[in-house]
Nucleic acid binder design. Structure first.
Lengths: 195, 195
DNA sequence: CGCGGGTTTGATGATGCTCAAGCCCGGTGG
DNA sequence: CCACCGGGCTTGAGCATCATCAAACCCGCG
C-alpha cells in the first residue's frame, strides 16, 4: 500500500524503516470514484492528498462559468490547495478525480505532527513547494514566450503519461486555449507528420 | 539599517531582540547601481536578496532575444532564483536593478546556518515560498481567464507602488503583452474616463 | 438503435502581434 | 542656452492567432 509513497519520499529525503512506518501512521487512505471531488470551491481544503493510484485535476471556474485547469496529478504526485490547507481559508478550487483513485490523505493536524516528529519532513515539504513553484514559474514564462503549438509539444514531452489519460479539453484548458484550438493544432501536427 | 527587514520578518514569525540580532549577522549588505545585475543567465545564483531600498526585476531572454519579466521587487521584498540558489545549478534568469538599490544578501551557507540556528526561519522561508507559489498560480489562472485590460487593471490595484517606478515596457512584459498593446490599452482607458 | 459527451470542422470576428514611423522629453555637447 | 540625439512611448496598417458559435461527427453505452 505504501510502496509508491516510500519511493516518492526517498527522492527527497532518506528515511529508515522505523521513521517510514512512523510516518505512514499519519496518512488516511481514501478512495474516490471517477467524477468525485476531494474539495469544491468554498470548502476548506482539509487535506494534502498523495495519489497512490488514479488521476485528478484541480481547476477554477471563472465568472463566465469557464473552467481553468491548474494542475493534473497521477500516481506518485500530490494534489491539494496548499493555500487553503495551510491557512484554513476556503478554497477557490475544485479537485476532481478523473479516474477511480486511491489517495493517502494528510490532514492539517497530521501534517503538523509529522513535521514535528520527523523534522526531515519540514525539508521534504519545502522541497515539494519549491519544485512546484519552479514549475509554475516556468509555465508562465512558457506561456509568454512560446506558441500554443510549442506548449502542446512540450506538454507531450513532459507529461506523456497524462496525455494518455485525460480528455483533450482538459489539456486545452491547462494550456490556456479552447478545445477547438487544440483540435486544430493536433490536426496540423499529423498533417506535417504525413509529408 | 535593519528596520525594514525586521518588520518584514515580523509579518510571518515572532523574534525576540536577541534572535533578531543573531539573524542580522547572516546578512551581507550590498549596493547595486541602476542597471547593475545581481545575477545573469548562466551564473549560479549565490544569494537570496532582501531589498532594503530600490527596485529590481527578474527576467529571462528567449531564443528570439525577447525578454520576459517574471517578477518585480521593491523595499521589503525578496528576489532571487530559488532554484539556482538552492540547487547550485546555473540560473536561466537575469536579476537587474531598475533603480540604485541597497540589498541584504543571504548566501547559501548563511541560509543553512540561519535555518539551523533559529528553526523558526525554516517556517519563515516556507511561508515565503508558499505565498510566492500561491501568487504565481493565481497569475496563471488570471492569464487564462482575464483579458489583457483586466490584468492591467488588476496590476494597478495590486502593485500601485510598482507602476509608478517601472517603465511601461517591463509591465507589458510581465503581463505577457507587447509595449504597443499596453499603450493602446492605456489609451482606451483614459478615453473611457473622459466620457 | 438511439442518445449524449467529447471531439472535430467551418465560418467569422476579436484580440494582440509585427513592422515602420512619429512623437515626446530629458540629457549632452557645442 | 539651444540644437541635437536617443530611448521610450505612441500611433497606424496589415496580419496571425486564437476565440466564438453552430453544426457535424464519432463512439461507447444504456
Amino acid at each position: 500500500m505504501y510502496e509508491i509513497l516510500r519511493k516518492h519520499i526517498a527522492q527527497y529525503i532518506t528515511l529508515d524503516d522505523v521513521e517510514f512506518s512512523q510516518c505512514t501512521a499519519f496518512f488516511t487512505p481514501r478512495k474516490l470514484r471517477k467524477r468525485g471531488f476531494l474539495v469544491q470551491e468554498g470548502d476548506v481544503c482539509k487535506y494534502a492528498a498523495f495519489i497512490h493510484k488514479g488521476c485528478l485535476r484541480s481547476y477554477t471556474v471563472d465568472n463566465k462559468g469557464d473552467e481553468h485547469v491548474l494542475q493534473f496529478a497521477i500516481e506518485g504526485w500530490w494534489i491539494s490547495d496548499m493555500y487553503s490547507f495551510l491557512t484554513g481559508e476556503p478554497t477557490g478550487y475544485f479537485i476532481e478525480a478523473l479516474e477511480d483513485s486511491e489517495l493517502l490523505l494528510l490532514d492539517r493536524q497530521a501534517y503538523d505532527q509529522l513535521t514535528e516528529n520527523i523534522p526531515k519532513f519540514e525539508r521534504f515539504f519545502r522541497l515539494l513547494l519549491q519544485n512546484n513553484l519552479i514549475a509554475t514559474q516556468r509555465r508562465i514564462i512558457a506561456e509568454h514566450s512560446k506558441t500554443a503549438v510549442d506548449r502542446y509539444l512540450d506538454f507531450l514531452q513532459t507529461y506523456p503519461s497524462i496525455v494518455e489519460r485525460v480528455p483533450l479539453r482538459h489539456i486545452a484548458s491547462y494550456l490556456g486555449i479552447t478545445p477547438e484550438a487544440l483540435s486544430r493544432i493536433r490536426r496540423e501536427l499529423v498533417n506535417k507528420e504525413n509529408k
